[in-house]
Nucleic acid binder design. Structure first.
Lengths: 360, 360
DNA sequence: ACATTCTTCGTGTGCGCACACTTTTTATGT
DNA sequence: ACATAAAAAGTGTGCGCACACGAAGAATGT
């Protein structure tokens, strides 16, 4: 192990001088700086993050800007837990994490929350960029202040973000197409459920749809699906009505594709006798969805591994801050296929962590 | 943050005394020990692993006993890389990792390697217990020396191991049954390939077979499969011969289940025209298997996530040693379903790590 | 009564680094 | 030539913990 002391002795300077070049503090003549830098790279020295963390005591602050969650709308709970786990791991390494929530349906809430970020004096920011215009503004300020930032779960191109971590939605949709086709006859039709908020601003969902239809184009050279627009999935009566109409219009429909995380809403809107004849494919392991998986009303779910998204995002940012490790630009986590059988094992790490924190 | 100093002040003793009870060094009267312990749990104090690591400088040594690997037989490369990644993470935390390889087909090699373990003076041991008798002997000595140990990938009951990390083979087999059934007609038959070394000592494979047949019993109330014993899968001519005979004897066979990691050997033994009509399900992402997945000759593979097994195993052991966090007895990693579409993303973390280490 | 051993506890140093403070060296102005 | 400022480099302290060492008191033996 090479220490600062060793570098200093070799360069015939004091440890303080080596420290100055390591942190670009200035006040070192060009000649000695060059000499020290050469020795550092020759000896492959790198700062011992453990000793560094001990000496600095909370130098780094990561602030997270993400949607809030509730019992009924629990999608963002899972990344939150992942972030919490990473926070626990890193608290001794001098990394503090602040979390600021916003209402995912209101751009104004997002904007207000983003203003609170500054008050935490962040060294780096992790955010879910749900609104383009507001993100643009926020991120410009971050760029100006030289605060690095990364995108979680939702990607948005054209920014100077350190990385994006999430899923390749197109491929996930493509895979959903394959899974649908698997349990259906070639001539079957599939109903694609679109809700209002899918249509414009949510790129994740539109890319899933794109991938889904591409699969059928690639394999069967045809569009497989009939698109049904449903305004409000929480209105069970209306939902049932719409779907029943569609089913009687087109008897060839044997499957339903739900590109959002609300597949369970379809299941609970329809009577069992109808559901039994349909193969429903959806996304994400919300409690309601996993319940359907267990009951057998949904054969497959595709998971985004949002717990790991949160966990890894913070780990990567911390690595970047403490050890100057630059991550890859796009971190795509596995596209998990969940069934009744493998469900229990897929959420293992989140489950264990939840137990752990609830005990204390 | 609570420090030893704070505990000491509260208990009106010196830091040294607190240190003694923290490490069970003895030499503390029962009354003060109880008092200190109470304060520790009241204030929820736990040792700062960062400061601890700095002060101790390589106190912990984890020795790994695992099979060697080669280009052709690369199964154990992936857990090896996972272990390496964990080693990199932990080197500054005072944890050193030694790896000792053995020939997985020779009990004697295993025994010899296990003897070498002692020379590394391990604080904890991670091993792949492939041979029962030899494991029994080895582990008895570890128990005597009070060295904790954990099992990787292969489980063996009846021992005092800290934990087992791997896959629930029964459920993985069960899921394989479901996936097979999915692409087959109900009346189809499936060929189950058994090789010699599957038969007796390999519990992983026999449990997979058990789960597989259970699925068909549960759903169709019948045994689905015809068992074919093949001595040597590397003998392509012989393999082809055996399978062809079986196929003409039982034309209803439309699928092949390979409970080992050698599914690709079946694919390469048979001509394309034969393969096309068969649905082959296998395990593990060896380079040969993933190649078949990409080509489309195998529709599904079930992954054990061996990279994560190695990575998590070392992390858990290190957590146990440095922070006294006792892990759960059985750590089951996700049972991943791999297809052509999601393959690329499933091996992401291993891929990135491999690139990283090859650059330096 | 005193020496000896054992039990119980306090003290001091260093791990590698960050950073404030101080000192020495060099450049600049008159 | 000298004073002064600016640049360059050295010194010291503390982060929280582990562990060796030593000190004080109690128990035991002669």
């Amino acid at each position: 192990m090479v220490r600062i002391k060793d570098i200093a002795k070799e360069a015939k300077v004091s440890e303080g001088t080596v420290d100055r070049v390591l942190h670009n503090r200035g006040g070192v003549s060009k000649t000695t700086e060059a000499r020290i830098k050469k020795i550092i790279s020759d000896k492959k020295f790198s700062i011992n993050p453990v000793a560094s963390a001990l000496a600095m005591k909370n130098k780094y602050t990561i602030t997270v800007l993400m949607p809030e969650f509730s019992e009924e709308d629990a999608f963002w709970k899972s990344p939150y837990l992942g972030i919490l786990k990473a926070t626990n791991e890193l608290q001794n390494l001098g990394v503090t994490v602040h979390i600021i929530h916003f209402n995912q349906y209101k751009a104004q809430s997002y904007e207000q929350a983003s203003q609170k970020v500054y008050k935490t004096n962040p060294t780096a920011v992790l955010l879910v960029p749900l609104f383009r215009k507001e993100t643009n503004q926020f991120v410009q300020e971050l760029d100006k202040l030289d605060i690095p930032y990364a995108f979680l779960n939702v990607n948005m191109d054209g920014f100077n973000n350190l990385f994006f971590i999430g899923q390749d939605s197109y491929t996930a949709g493509y895979l959903a197409g394959k899974l649908s086709a698997l349990s259906l006859k070639p001539q079957s039709k599939i109903l694609l459920i679109q809700t209002r908020d899918n249509i414009d601003n949510n790129t994740t969902i539109s890319k899933r749809i794109e991938g889904f239809t591409s699969y059928f184009k690639d394999v069967y050279s045809k569009a497989p699906s009939i698109i049904l627009k449903i305004e409000n999935l929480d209105d069970k009566k209306g939902t049932e009505q719409s779907i029943r109409t569609q089913l009687s219009n087109t008897p060839a429909i044997e499957g339903i594709f739900v590109p959002s995380s609300r597949a369970s809403a379809i299941v609970t809107s329809l009577p069992k006798t109808v559901i039994e004849k349909l193969s429903i494919i959806g996304f994400d392991t919300t409690p309601q969805n996993t319940q359907c998986l267990k009951e057998g009303t949904i054969p497959f779910l595709i998971s985004q591994k949002t717990f790991d998204q949160g966990l890894e995002a913070i780990r990567l940012l911390a690595d970047y801050l403490t050890a100057k490790k630059t991550p890859v630009k796009k971190v795509y986590l596995p596209i998990d296929i969940l069934t009744k059988e493998n469900l229990a094992y897929n959420e293992g790490s989140q489950y264990h962590f939840e137990r752990e924190v609830s005990l204390s």
